[in-house]
Amino acid sequence: MKRRAHLAGLLALPMFWLIGIYIFSLVMLLVTAFWTTDPFTSKVKPGFTLRNFEQLVANPAYLSTAVRTLVIALAVTVLCMLISVPLGIFMAKIAKPWLRALLAVAITLPLWAGYLVKILAMRVTFTDAGFFNWALAPFGITGPSFSITTVVLTLTYLWLPYMAVPVYTAIRQLPANLFDASADLGAGAWRTIRTIVLPLIKPAIIAGSIFTFSLSLGDYIAAKFVGGSTQMIGSIIASNINLNPPIAAAFAVVPIAFVVIYLLSVQRTGALERM
């Protein structure tokens, strides 16, 4: 009984905060999604309508934005995986200890360089009169300038460490005798990576993908500054929050739904405990 009271004492304040403020706000946002806005005064009126959600599907601009955002988030996640696995293998299994230590610092360092700083950096790099076009000009190539490609590159740049660090840690923890056994049984390097390394680091990849996927899904600052006219779900939420809160709320449900589905489907793999 005394233990119970202790536990309640420990949890009371954090739960008040997380449920009483955060979850309460999320629920109220969800409720607002069913409300209406007076078109003249743009005041929110309580009620019940499904029109806001209908808009998501019925309005082709909204639907294509939702699909585009999902495609961008998936592209960023796949790109991060494709970079992280070779990077992790090189660092953990090929690099000499001094190079490994140096690379470990080198890939985590930009993580703290600041979110906006990195978006600014990509903006400076990819702008029309910028470095990228200048470097490629001798080859007669023009870069992607500000477009959806640059958005994917920028988001990959922003979130790569979230994937690269867990993947590297997981590869490092693989016991060396697994590789010996695989080689002794005649498997080549490529086959060892495919049948031994990849299945064992799957939880780490999943843990990393939660971040790369969810962070890309909700981002719209990158689209705003390096995307040209590219719109993402967040752009629509942000532009509606003052004029039409219910439609913004309805749109906010879309990334929540994507992320919750993703979290629930990976919870069984035990990846959440590694975060």
Binding site: L11, P14, M15, L18, I19, I21, Y22, I23, F24, S25, L26, M28, L29, T32, I210, S214, L215, L217, G218, D219, Y220, I233, G234, I237, A238, I241, P245, A248, A249, A252, P255, I256, V259, L263, Q267, L272, E273, M275
Partner: peptide
């Protein structure tokens, strides 16, 4: 409870921001 602690950074920032703004 574990999920609840992770949720605020797992959910997109724009959702957290809009939800609190709404409140």
């Amino acid at each position: 409870v574990n999920l609840l602690v992770v949720l605020p950074i797992a959910l997109p920032g724009v959702v957290t921001g809009v939800a609190l703004n709404n409140t």
